[in-house]
């Protein structure tokens, strides 16, 4: 096993990084791949609650780095899927507790134990973000169709390139198709044109995300949820399957229109 390391980041906080990380990890593990999710947001951990694993934490990322436990002891096995693991962030420390070199060393050890490593980056462009992208093979930038989120995404994309971790890939989260139709939300193709990186997924705004997070049940396990389906499709794309955007949300629902900017969507099922 030699895992690929994928870091999820955004610049701006609150755009859905943790939800996307938890659900991409869950969805790829559901394919039968061995996945480790690392919460790199030291001091503000949340990946544990989104995955519903907050009661199982004994050791954390900083404990591993500082040698208080072995790597395997800090890997919490998911309740539902034995192929999914979480390494939680420390809650009582801060970002300076670990360095980019620590993260690279930790991931190199982990690569032998898994197929995929997903790192949930903290917001911002400081140490925590640098820690999160240091070991990355692929960096995914999450944004919302909102002026401040897009601007911050652009900043982070520039830094990722400067760090030679680019080109980053883009997920646009919390799209409101009705608002796009009215012209009151910046269009997907405009965001892609402005940021000029490859789009690997679009996720609609979906109330069910809050409901599922309330329960600690990842939305990607919900067959009926549109957001869940969108994230499952991104997971399959990362896994290497060629899933056209047309298939993504065009099964006769409101997403047909917003995906119609991709020419191939017309006439496809």
């Amino acid at each position: 096993m030699t895992a690929k390391v994928i870091t999820i980041t955004s610049g701006k906080g609150g755009v859905g990084k943790t939800t996307i990380t938890a659900n991409l990890g869950t969805a790829i593990a559901s394919i039968g791949q061995k996945v480790v999710c690392i919460d790199a947001d030291i001091g503000l951990r949340n990946l544990d609650v989104v995955l519903g694993l907050e009661n199982r934490i004994v050791y954390d990322l900083v404990d591993v780095v500082e040698g208080r436990c072995r790597l395997r002891q800090a890997m919490i096995k998911d309740k539902r899927n034995p192929d999914l693991f979480l390494i939680p962030a420390a809650q009582t420390r801060d970002k300076s507790a670990i360095s980019p070199t620590d993260m690279i060393r930790l991931c190199n050890e982990l690569r032998e134990l898994a197929d995929w490593i997903f790192i949930d980056s903290p917001a911002g462009i400081e140490r925590g973000f640098r820690n999160a992208i240091a070991p990355a093979d692929i960096v995914i930038v999450v944004t919302n169709p909102e002026i401040s989120a897009i601007r911050d995404a652009d900043r982070i994309i520039g830094i990722i390139e400067a760090e030679e971790k680019g080109p980053a890939k883009l997920i646009i989260n919390r799209i409101n198709p009705a608002m796009i139709r009215r012209g009151e939300m910046i269009a997907i193709e405009d965001i892609v044109e402005l940021l000029a990186i490859e789009l690997i997924g679009i996720v609609p705004e979906d109330e069910k995300v809050i409901v599922s997070t309330n329960k600690g049940f990842p939305i990607s396990l919900d067959e009926k949820s549109l957001a869940g389906r969108s994230i499952r499709n991104i997971a399959h794309r990362i896994y290497g399957e060629d899933i056209p955007f047309a298939n993504l949300e065009s099964n006769g629902n409101l997403f047909t229109r917003i995906t119609s900017f991709i020419r191939s969507s017309r006439g496809e099922k």
Binding site: I147, I150, R151, D154, R155, G158, M179, I180, R182, G183, E184, M185, I186, A187, D190, L194
Partner: peptide, 19 residues
């Protein structure tokens, strides 16, 4: 223009300056 287009135009200017 609708606010979606206004956002795009404003972002175009801001991003060039940021970059």
């Amino acid at each position: 223009p609708r606010s979606g287009k206004v956002a795009k135009e404003r972002l175009q200017m801001v991003l060039i300056h940021d970059r």
